[in-house]
Amino acid sequence: MAIIVNLDVMMARRKMSLSELSEKVGISLANLSILKNNKAKAMRFTTLNAICKVLDCQPADILAFSEET
């Protein structure tokens, strides 16, 4: 997919585990795992908002565009 989710990079920077993020954001561990592994087909603004709030970052820190598909 052209859109890459760099959630693991941001999590590493904030030294936060997936389960901790899941608890704070209020998303299931399974869904967060889908997002982290670039398996997600779409992302809600509410989810993006919650993740940015918890990780104290901008959407561009999590999402990136790549020419390669």
Partner: peptide, 8 residues
């Protein structure tokens, strides 16, 4: 349905 289930 697949897309919906993979929407986070």
């Amino acid at each position: 349905a697949e897309e919906n289930s993979l929407t986070v």
